[in-house]
Amino acid sequence: MLNEWMQNPEVIRLLQLNSDGLLFAIWETLYVTIISTLFAYVIGLPLGVLAVVGEENGVLPLPKWLMAVMNTVINILRSVPFLILMVVVIPLSRLILQTSIGTNATIVPLIVAAFPFVARLVEASLREIDSGVIEAAQSMGCSPFQIITKVILPESRPSLISGLTTAFITILSYGAMAGAIGGGGLGSMALNLGYQRRMNIILWVSVVVLVILVQIFQSIGTRAAVRTDKRIRSQADKKKARDRHKKNVRQQRRFPGAM
């Protein structure tokens, strides 16, 4: 039985250690997801912060037109279906990376799709903060910048970690679509080998590995969110908080279409 399996060309393909194998696909998926998440936060985190502090009664009120422009851009980008966005940003990928196909080229549309989503996730986390704490900081003579870096961000850390989990697994799932523009990874494996070339074993293995990856990161994320939350005291509270974070992640992530 095992021998029979080992001679199956699909299984042989999966077990290859070069760029054709499953291991490499997992690596590519993680690489694309990590880099995209990183850059999505580099752009999305400041935007999310500005969306909260820049409001009329925020700690750093910004001109109304600026807020309107920012919100409009975020909303428009969030409405474009990802498959379309991938095609639309091809010129941008060419400009930045000199290429519009391949694994690296999938990172650009992922960032463009994810940073507005991240901005909204961050915004939602920051809005959970009790305004009294910000008022207390103001009464102590904090500057707006100090309030952001020393009060708003640290106080919403558990929620931000929960949001990061959502962003990470959403980007991971979206990365699976990258197969369509020649990117690598598990999604491409499932699509190009599993589906197009009818290699059923490869299709199912890719899907199962994707699901397992999502579960692993969701679990790591919610645990980290709960562990860093100093408001939680008892074991029972911990369990409740984990369930709450998991529910949040499930509700906030997007399938499929636009983020």
Binding site: G132, V133, A136, S139, G141, V151, P154, E155, R231
Partner: peptide
């Protein structure tokens, strides 16, 4: 802001940094 450091305030809901 400098002046506010000399005028402290306490609140009904304490407003401590929970983290």
């Amino acid at each position: 802001r400098e002046k506010r450091r000399k005028i402290s305030m306490i609140f009904q809901q304490f407003n401590l940094l929970m983290q």
